[in-house]
Design a protein around this nucleic acid. Structure first.
Length: 330
DNA sequence: TGTATGCAAATAAGG
DNA sequence: TCCTTATTTGCATAC
């Protein structure tokens, strides 16, 4: 993402993506960098820079090299390429009821919103003392940037010379693209939101995914590898969800509202104060010993591992940032 | 209110 | 056991 880190984005397949040849002069850096007069990175633009207008104007069918097999239902997209409604066309295997009215919403009183995750950390009062504000702005150093180049599915599939059967490392991108599109349709037909799917996945066995993950998958804003990994999970879940629905709406809601089984460690949110302290320590010593890490962890009252990883990530960020700055030397 | 996305925490892999 | 590097993924928030 932002800078960097995200090598992904399979996405933008539904609309003939147009890779606006980013940074033609700066090899190795994904996306476009936005810098200020000082050459500092202040933001980035995604790889695929197909202007909304363009995307909307040239719907999938037009995709030259990509064979867009007519997926069962049809989507009504807005200018941003977002699905705003679905049109159930015959073939649909959806045992669903409604013809396909405006999706989402109405999924009953169903589940409770995002459960408040009890973080061990306090949000912390705004602007304590001096220094760094919240995370993002805290770091004295600029934005984190990695130099990876792993393209996303969307990027790959949209490559000009895309062969009939677009493949990347043995991964059938076209198939994934098709599934992602189909998945969204079927999800909407079930009347479920990305958030609900994420919660449901977290509840079932197998890896857990957040709303963000579902969103990125649907948009193919992920790497082929990630998509390949997520696809079977979603396929399996979807099958079961549709089965539940056939058994009754209640069954579906129960299925969706299961108890979370957390598989990935919950992301820690450091308080501004904690970040300030961590950064202060980092300034003094970027590579603390095990004992020091333990002491800092106790002092700030965070898990030792969390603090250790923070230092690792901080060093990585600094390193990547430094690398990036090389390109901006006046 | 649901979805999209920036930033960075967590994880994987190799040493 | 812990580091580096690359990558994945989620929180927070903007849209």
């Amino acid at each position: 993402a932002a800078l960097g880190a995200q090598p992904q984005i399979l996405g933008s397949l539904s609309a003939p993506p147009v890779i606006a040849n980013p940074l033609p002069s700066i090899q190795g850096i994904p996306g476009q960098l936005l810098t200020n007069a000082q050459g500092q990175v202040i933001g980035t633009l995604p790889w695929v820079v197909a202007p909304p207008g363009v995307a909307a104007a040239a719907p999938a069918p037009a995709a030259p090299s990509l064979q867009v097999t007519p997926v069962t239902p049809q989507l009504l997209l807005n200018a941003q390429g977002q699905v705003i409604a679905t049109l159930a066309t015959g073939a649909a295997t959806l045992a669903t009821a409604p013809p396909a009215p405006a999706p989402s919403k109405k999924n009953g009183p169903a589940e409770p919103p995002v459960k408040s995750e009890v973080q061990p950390i306090q949000p912390a009062p705004a602007g304590v003392g001096t220094s760094p504000a919240p995370a993002a702005k805290v770091s004295p150093s600029p934005v984190p940037i990695t130099c990876s180049e792993t393209p996303t599915v969307s990027q790959l599939v949209s490559k000009p010379p895309a062969p009939p059967s677009t493949e990347e490392d043995g991964i059938n991108l076209e198939e994934i693209r098709e599934f992602a599109k189909n998945f969204k349709l079927r999800r909407l037909s079930l009347g479920l939101t990305q958030t609900q799917v994420g919660q449901a996945l977290t509840a079932t066995e197998g890896p857990a995914y957040s709303q963000s993950a579902i969103c990125r998958f649907e948009k193919l804003d992920i790497t082929p590898k990630s998509a390949q990994k997520l696809k079977p999970v979603l396929e399996k879940w979807l099958r079961e969800a549709e089965q539940r629905q056939r058994e009754g709406q209640q069954h579906l809601l129960e299925f969706v509202g299961g108890e979370p089984g957390k598989k990935r460690k919950r992301r820690t949110s450091f308080t501004p104060q904690a970040l300030e302290a961590l950064n202060a320590h980092f300034e003094r010593n970027a590579l603390p010993t095990g004992a020091e890490i333990t002491r800092i962890a106790q002092e700030l009252r965070y898990e030792r591992e969390v603090v250790r990883v923070w230092f690792c990530n901080r060093r990585q960020t600094l390193k990547n940032t430094s690398k990036l700055n090389v390109f901006h030397v006046p």
